[in-house]
Simulated scan of single mutants.
Amino acid sequence: MKKIMTGLDVLLKDNALQSQFKGNVALLCHNASVDGNLQHATLGFKKIFRDRFIKIFGPQHGFSTDAQDNMIETDHTVHPYFNIPVYLLYSETRIPTEAMLKDIDHLFIDLQDVGCRMYTYIYTMTLILDACVSKDIEIVILDRPNPLNGVDLEGNVLDMEFESFIGLHPMPVRHAMTIGEVALMHQRYWAASKSKLRVIEMRGWTRQMYYEDTGLPWLLPSPNLSRVESAFTFPGMVLFEGTTLSEGRGTTQPLEIMGHPKIEPYGYWDTYLSQAFAKSGLQGVAIRPINFLPTFQKQADKPCGGFQVHTLDRKTCKPWRVGQWLMQELHHYMGDHFEWLNPPYEYDYENWPIDIINGTDKLRKWVEAKGTMEELDAMEDYSEYQSNLESIQLY
């Protein structure tokens, strides 16, 4: 399989392109910011730009991608090898300050997104764009694949009454954009004023590709997505962050499994859930009863019963739909043992975390009322979004 070229690869191999960046440069990056030879972007930048490479930025989970989930902040530091500042944009601020942006002429962004609205890296990028509106700083996006493909939309469009750092823009859960296209969408439809923006496009990527089709190695973009399989189940399993159930953090397969000490998975599956699954219309997926022991985070050191979601067919599986269905079934099976997580969540101290994750309160109410799958379908309306998406597509 031939590898595609990411925006980083294109930059590193094109001397004429490199020569267009005359001033000081900074780089927003993380663990997955590597070229086709697995060399980290910072090493390439040091070779190309030398002393003009003056600052590094990191998103949520840090430059090293080692900090855990919600509201776990990381400190600014000085890189021990490059001897330049490393500023973290999931710290006391999620917006770069004047001091952080000082003396930068070109701010490059090389982040592996996972194609899901609840993932924060796209919002770190759009907040940077907003912060640079009145500044002579060019924002350069080194584009990377959407691992869920650039075609399939899934999930409700965000209700802006539930805006948060895991939902700043009116997009569905699976948004079908690359990170470069998110930047273009922001500038055309969401930003009050435009910034200086350039997208360095990939070569060889097509919209139908899943990550496995790119020929690129998968490097975890955040601590709990170590497998490309986890990225595909993420749109559904991340919903359980809004409950007291474990979403598998503290195990080796987070965001593919979920559970709780009060779930007896085998009996529940055998006597009821397997039959309900057969009637649900869900395709391309298998659900397997399991037991597991989280070593940290929710339900730490408590034996849990639960389920693992296995994707059998990427083309027919709808992970967001699977997650919503499983949430509803477990809510009614567990009774009083099923609890919604209390605030705060992603710096929102008022709304239910599940409503912040869903981008609406309608889905929580659908779960509680045991609504129908037809009612779930009705929450997916992409008419306006689809038109906007087609207008900014690069590939």
Rank of each mutant, 00 (worst) to 15 (best):
L158Y: 07
T126S: 13
I137S: 00
T97N: 11
P147A: 07
D130H: 13
E73T: 10
I72T: 06
T120P: 14
I95C: 13
I122E: 05
N146P: 11
I72P: 00
Y87W: 13
M118T: 15
L89T: 15
C116S: 09
P80C: 05
V78M: 05
S134V: 01
Q112C: 09
E138S: 13
P80A: 04
P145Y: 08
E161C: 11
A131V: 07
D136R: 09
D105I: 12
D143G: 10
M125R: 05
F108P: 10
P96S: 12
I139Q: 08
L148T: 11
D136S: 14
C132H: 03
N83Q: 15
E73H: 07
R117M: 05
N83K: 15
T74C: 09
D75F: 06
N146Y: 00
C116W: 00
L148Y: 03
I128Q: 02
V140A: 07
R117K: 05
R94W: 04
I72S: 03
I139A: 08
V114S: 11
Q68N: 03
T97F: 09
L129S: 09
V86T: 11
R144Y: 10
L89A: 09
L107Q: 03
M118Q: 13
N149Y: 07
L88Y: 07
V114Y: 07
P145K: 02
M125T: 14
F82H: 14
Y121L: 05
E73G: 00
D75C: 11
E161Y: 07
M100K: 09
E138Y: 04
H106D: 13
G115V: 10
T97C: 11
M125L: 15
